[in-house]
Design a protein around this nucleic acid. Structure first.
Length: 220
DNA sequence: TGGTGATCATCA
DNA sequence: TGATGATCACCA
């Protein structure tokens, strides 16, 4: 099932474009939940299964042998993203020496297969259509935007300014909580360089950024 | 706990 | 009403 090369992956992705979640799920004998309240990652998992990615948690690209990360992107009727896009957990400790060039964010975003998906809640989950795939690599401009934000955000982390971090920081990428709930805990660096308990944070792409990706591929 | 996949839902 | 902060499920 795992595609052996990029062409096969793209072909598979193109072959499911136009289907609804319900049609695809039925083919794969996967039950469709009534909504996403308790199954927030269901759509992404469905696409992973359909495209032959190995399900489960592994800290790497979905198609590591192809160097490709798979991401579903819920959009509204206007083709605009409905949600920000999670990229990766932020390293809150042991991050000395981490540079943009060897960061998880850069690696994850070096090549992404985006699959737009109808996401409006008034459309029943099983009736939502799967869009045409977009194989994307950041342009030099996009990468420099990401790098700038990453460096600014990482500065808060490494300088022990965790308490000052807000989702408003960052032009195209932000830091937000990423965990089971507000009681989730991890280690971070405090004001005086000491280890402190803090909320796990993740990097998220702002909607405007992913909207730009859609725009460049769908031709404005 | 820290990853994967994300969306929910409250409040400014 | 949209974005921020919170949350859901599953796995190793």
């Amino acid at each position: 099932m795992m595609p052996q090369n990029l062409a096969a992956l793209l072909q598979k992705a193109q072959s499911i474009a136009g289907l609804t979640f319900g049609e695809l799920a039925d083919e794969l004998n996967i039950p469709v939940p009534p909504n996403l309240k308790r199954d927030k990652g269901w759509g992404g998992m469905l696409l992973e299964t359909a495209l032959g990615a190995t399900a489960g948690s592994k800290a790497e690209q979905d198609f590591a042998h192809l160097g490709v990360e798979l991401k579903s992107l819920p959009i509204n009727e206007q083709g605009f993203p409905l949600e920000t896009t999670f990229v990766s957990l932020a390293p809150l400790t042991q991050n000395s020496g981490v540079q943009w060039e060897n960061s998880h964010v850069r690696h994850k975003l070096s090549c992404v297969l985006w699959i737009p998906v109808e996401g409006s809640r008034h459309i029943a989950l099983r009736d939502r259509h799967i869009g045409a795939p977009i194989l994307w690599q950041p342009s030099p401009e996009q990468e420099s935007q990401l790098k700038r934000d990453w460096e600014e955000l990482m500065e808060y982390i490494t300088l022990g300014r965790l308490n000052e971090i807000t989702a408003r920081i960052g032009e195209v990428m932000q830091l937000r909580p990423k965990g089971a709930n507000s009681k989730a805990i991890t280690k971070g660096i405090g004001k005086n360089g000491e280890v402190v308990e803090t909320l796990p944070l993740g990097f998220y792409l702002r909607k405007e950024f992913t909207a730009g990706i859609l725009r460049e591929f769908l031709g404005n």
